[in-house]
C-alpha cells in the first residue's frame, strides 16, 4: 500500500549537519577522526544483547527486499534503531506542533488533562522539517 502524495526523498542531500563529513575509507581506517562514529563503534558490542522495538525479523525482511542480506544481527538492530529514532524525532516534532496548535486554538478552554491526537496537520510540518513533503491526497478512494 502506498499513500498518494507521500514522497520520501531521504537521499536528496538532507545532511544538514556540517560536522559529519566522512567517507567509507575514513570510517574504516581512521575512526577516531569522527566523534559520532567512534561513539557508535563503542556502542556496537552493546547491540549484541539489545532488543529494538522493531522485531529483527521484520527489519530483516524489509532489508532483504532491498537486496541487503547481512548475517550480523547487530547491523540489523542498528538499522532498526536508526529507523525508530527517525520516527521518534518526527513524533516529538509533531507533538510540539500539536501543543502549539491546540494552545493557540483553544486558550480559553484550558484543561489540565488534555489528550493529544496526532493529525495530519501536525505531522505535515514535522515531516517537512525532515525533508519529507506530504501532500494532501487529492481524493480518497
Amino acid at each position: 500500500m502506498s499513500i498518494p502524495g507521500t514522497s520520501a526523498n531521504h537521499a536528496n542531500g538532507q545532511d544538514t549537519k556540517p560536522t559529519i563529513t566522512m567517507s567509507a575509507g575514513q570510517m574504516v581506517s581512521n575512526q577516531s577522526s569522527s566523534i559520532g562514529g567512534q561513539q557508535l563503534i563503542d556502542f556496537l558490542p552493546s547491540l549484541e544483547d539489545y532488543t529494538p522495538t522493531i522485531p529483527d525479523a521484520v527489519t530483516g525482511s524489509f532489508l532483504n527486499s532491498a537486496g541487503f542480506a547481512s548475517t550480523d544481527p547487530r547491523v540489523v538492530r542498528l538499522i532498526s534503531l536508526a529507523a525508530q529514532k527517525f520516527l521518534s524525532d518526527v513524533a516529538n516534532d509533531a507533538l510540539q506542533h500539536c501543543k502549539v496548535r491546540t494552545s493557540n486554538q483553544s486558550s480559553k478552554s484550558k484543561s489540565k488533562d488534555r489528550t493529544y491526537t496526532l493529525t495530519m496537520d501536525d505531522l505535515t510540518p514535522a515531516l517537512a522539517e525532515h525533508g519529507i513533503t506530504v501532500r494532501k491526497p487529492p481524493y480518497f478512494v
Binding site: M1, S2, I3, T6, A8, H10, A11, I54, T59, F62, L63, N64, S65, A66, G67, F68, I79, S80, A82, A83, Q84, F86, L87, V90, L127, I132
Partner: peptide, 12 residues
C-alpha cells in the same frame, strides 16, 4: 509508510 521506506532506503 515512512518507517517502511526508511528501512528499505537504508538497506538499499
Amino acid at each position: 509508510e515512512i518507517l517502511q521506506s526508511i528501512i528499505v532506503e537504508i538497506g538499499n
